[in-house]
Write a protein that binds this DNA or RNA. Sequence first.
DNA 1: TGCCCTATGCAACGGAAGTGCATTATTTGC
DNA 2: GCAAATAATGCACTTCCGTTGCATAGGGCA
Lengths: 145, 145
Amino acid sequence: MNEIRTAPNKYEKILENNNIKPTAMRLLVLQFLLNKNVATSLTDVENYFAKSDRTTLYRTLKTFVEKGISHKIDDGTGITKYALCEDNCRCEIDTDLHLHFHCTKCSETVCITEYKIPPIHLPKDYIAENVNLVVKGICDKCNSK
Amino acid sequence: MNEIRTAPNKYEKILENNNIKPTAMRLLVLQFLLNKNVATSLTDVENYFAKSDRTTLYRTLKTFVEKGISHKIDDGTGITKYALCEDNCRCEIDTDLHLHFHCTKCSETVCITEYKIPPIHLPKDYIAENVNLVVKGICDKCNSK
DNA sequence: TGCCCTATGCAACGGAAGTGCATTATTTGC
DNA sequence: GCAAATAATGCACTTCCGTTGCATAGGGCA
Ligand SMILES: [Mn+2]
Ligand SMILES: [Mn+2]
Ligand SMILES: [Zn+2]
Ligand SMILES: [Zn+2]
């Protein structure tokens, strides 16, 4: 993680396109999230950037969610996770929501974006506004060991 | 003791059938849960039984889950809820798991047992062991007001 | 009655999210 | 370029809930 000084790079563009001021910390966190393919907790980020302040990182992740480049994941572990959204994601119930898989062996949580959440049947007069679908089990990596 | 024991009422039977000693507190909590049709938090129980101890109630609920007469619900609010299982429930993934609906207006969470959770598609090599499906929105009662 | 096992009650702990506020950095107006 | 305004950061502290340790009480049984 060193190439931050190099002119308007792709990371700065991502932030600027979403009305997020590209501060040093935000760029580093964005880069960190982009390089990970699993959902990331505040503590994960905190451990990686050992020198920086938890609150700043907390608010950075919060900003990312508010500005729409990241989504918050409640995988049932009690620890909030974050993952960058796919391109053109608007976190909408019918098009963008996907299930999250939590592996009970390696404890990692991943976005399963390949399949959409199946249509949910609800009794009369219920209105769905949001869906959280979490599957726990063994992930592909752990399964092939 | 040769005396004829007083016949157990239906609450005692429920507990005894599941190897739970029917103490006074447990009977009261069971009765409370049976009379509610919404998922119940420890704090709910605590408020209802104002004089009794939080830990005892906590452990009562925990015992109910361990012995299989109740299930724990993570509705995404950060507050664990409990609801009594249906008859013959073994909390198994294919037969007993149902979705939970959390109303953002009245803040109540209910078990939707009428419909089963639809089959989940997962990528190759993933093994599902458990599913948590929570839908947020407006419940029937709030919707008809 | 005395023993043992369980249930109970009180207190304290721990993790994680979130907030108040002073300080520092950056932008904006002139 | 300078000063005022605005935004980001850092530190301390709080709150909320779940959980545990440990001492005491109660109830079945020899
Ligand atoms: Mn995701
Ligand atoms: Mn339920
Ligand atoms: Zn795994
Ligand atoms: Zn409602």
